[in-house]
Amino acid sequence: MSDPAVPRRPTLDLRSLTPARVALGRSGASVPTKALLDFTLDHARARDAVHAAFDAPRLVVELRALGLVVTEARSRAVDRRDYLRRPDLGRQLDAESAELLARGASGPCQIAVVIGDGLSAAAIHAHAVGLLKHLLPLLKEAGDVAVGQIVVASGARVALGDEIGAILGARMVVTLIGERPGLSAPDSLGAYLTFAPKPGCTDAERNCVSNIHKAGLSYQEAAFKIAWLVREGLAREVTGVALKDESGDRAPRRIGTALPE
C-alpha cells in the first residue's frame, strides 16, 4: 500500500512540464477528438517543414547586413525530391559551388560557418540569424577566435560542411542546420562542430548542440555551449567523442593555453 502521508500528484501535472503526449485521456477505444486533431495538426506542420522552400537569398541579405562575408552554395541534390531520396547527394557540393568557394578562399582560417536548410528550412529562417547574433560576440570577446567565411548552403546534409571547410582551409567548421522535425518542434535547429573537416569524416568526429528553438535551448545557452566547444576543440585539436561538453562546469580557456599535465 502507498503511504497516505505522501501526497499524490495527478498525471495531468506532467502536461505542464513537457510537450510530450501524456495524459491524453480516452474516448472509448481511442483518444479524445481534441487530442487527435492536435496530433494531426502537429504532424502536418512537421511534414510541411520538411518540404518547405529554403529562401537562401533572403538569408544572405540578412547576414550581410550584420557585416559578414557570405557566399551561397548548393549540394548535388537538384531539388527537394532528389534531396530526400538521395541523402548522399546532400553531402557533396555541386561542381560550380566547389569552384566558386575555391576561388573565394582567402587562405587558412580558424572557423568556417555553414548554414544549411537540412530537413527544416523553417528552423534556419526562424533561428539562424538570432543564434549568430549571440554566438559571434562570444567567439570574439577573448580575441582568439576568428570566423573566416559564412556559407549558406541549399540542399545540405551535415557532412556537406566537411567539404566546404576543407576547401576554405578551416581548422574547424560549425554547421547550423535544420533538424528532422518532431511533432512538438518542426523548427528545431542543430549545430555540428567538426575539427579538421574533410570529406569522409564520421559523426563520431563531431560535437552536436541540438534542440535550439523557442521551447528548447535558448540562443544564449546554445551560443555559450557552441563557443565553449569551439575554443576547447581548437585548443585540444579534436572534436567528437574525444571532446566532452563540460561548458557547465567551467569557463572556456583561451586558445594557446597549455592543457594541465
Rank of each mutant, 00 (worst) to 15 (best):
G200R: 01
R58S: 15
G28C: 09
R85C: 07
S2V: 11
S97N: 05
P181Y: 09
S120R: 06
R85L: 15
L68S: 03
K214W: 09
G216N: 06
S120A: 15
L36F: 13
R45C: 05
A156V: 02
V238M: 14
P197D: 04
G165W: 02
E62D: 15
S120Y: 12
D3S: 15
G143T: 13
F224L: 04
E237Q: 15
A128Y: 12
D3H: 13
V230H: 00
D48S: 14
L193K: 03
L234Y: 04
A105H: 12
A35R: 06
G130L: 05
E62L: 12
D162C: 01
D245T: 11
P137K: 03
L132W: 14
D3F: 10
V31I: 14
L138C: 04
L59T: 02
V60F: 02
L68Q: 12
V241F: 07
G155S: 12
L89D: 10
G200D: 03
K34G: 01
A196R: 07
S210R: 10
L131V: 09
H134Y: 10
G182A: 02
S2P: 06
R9N: 06
S210Y: 08
N207V: 09
P260G: 09
A52M: 10
E96C: 01
V152K: 01
P19Q: 05
V158M: 04
V241M: 14
D162G: 01
A49Y: 05
G130T: 06
V173G: 03
K133P: 00
V6R: 13
E221W: 01
I167L: 15
L168G: 11
R15W: 02
E179T: 09
G155D: 09
A65R: 14
L89F: 11
G116M: 07
V145P: 02
A227I: 05
G216K: 08
L132P: 02
I115F: 11
L229I: 11
R86V: 08
G104M: 11
T11F: 11
A191I: 04
R85H: 14
